[in-house]
């Protein structure tokens, strides 16, 4: 392998560590221009940076903004490479697909957004539907993209009941255990998750990643 390619991989990793989407996109375009296999660019370049930041975060040396910015830079690079992957009929190996949403009637989302970022950074393919989402829309999206996990957020005691309704709906349609359900939000306790027969809950984004990995059998 030439030194130039070595250097390109290093720069790719560094662009993620720096959380610089402009540079990560530029490097992804460069990879396409020199006919670098897009999967190589991802696994030997960009992912190295994501893993580094993840490790630093685990050690308490990096903090949430760095993680989020690394996640954004990664997303931008992958989006640039995606058309090439499709052309080659290749798919990036992911930990699994996750649909995230805040339940109907609730507009709180910072926690859910954090979970989404952390899951993306950890190799999950995340579709975040946003806030105030009815159950049928969330389930519809999960089926459409063949998701393994639905993550449901609620901040209010008055809206957290929607989590139960969605789980009941999945059960009615016999979609479980094919689709696992993680619930979260400030009022959500372990007891609540058990009571509504969710597959798990976590109070923070780090725990959510751990849980998601367990749910897809890749812990």
């Amino acid at each position: 392998m030439s030194e130039d390619i070595e250097k390109l991989y290093k720069d790719m990793a560094q662009s993620i560590i720096d959380g610089d989407s402009d540079i990560s996109v530029e490097l992804a375009q460069k990879a396409i221009a020199i006919n670098m296999p897009p999967l190589d660019a991802i696994t030997k370049g960009f992912v190295v940076g994501v893993n580094y930041i993840g490790d630093q975060f685990g050690l308490g040396e990096a903090f949430l903004p760095e993680l989020v910015m690394a996640g954004e830079a990664m997303k931008a690079a992958v989006a640039t490479l995606e058309p090439e992957l499709l052309k080659l009929g290749e798919a990036r190996e992911t930990m699994g697909r996750v649909v995230l949403a805040t339940v109907e009637g609730d507009i709180h989302e910072i926690g859910k957004t954090l979970v989404g970022t952390m899951l993306s950074a950890s190799g999950f393919e995340v579709t975040d539907l946003g806030v105030d989402q009815p159950a049928e829309k969330i389930i519809g999206k999960a089926l459409e993209i063949n998701a393994s996990i639905i993550g449901l957020s609620a901040l209010l005691t008055t809206t957290m009941v929607r989590q139960r309704e969605l789980i009941e709906e999945l059960d009615k349609e016999n979609l479980r255990p094919r689709i696992k359900v993680m619930v979260g939000g400030a009022p959500i306790t372990r007891d609540w998750a058990t009571k509504i027969k969710a597959d798990g809950t976590s109070e923070d984004a780090v725990g959510a990643v751990k849980l998601a990995k367990e749910l897809v059998g890749k812990a």
Binding site: G19, F63, L64, P65, E66, V68, M69, L114, T117
Partner: peptide, 14 residues
């Protein structure tokens, strides 16, 4: 939205 992906945020986290 949120401030987590802002360079300013990262520069001042510490």
């Amino acid at each position: 939205g949120h401030f987590l992906a802002q360079k300013h945020t990262r520069n001042h986290t510490r």
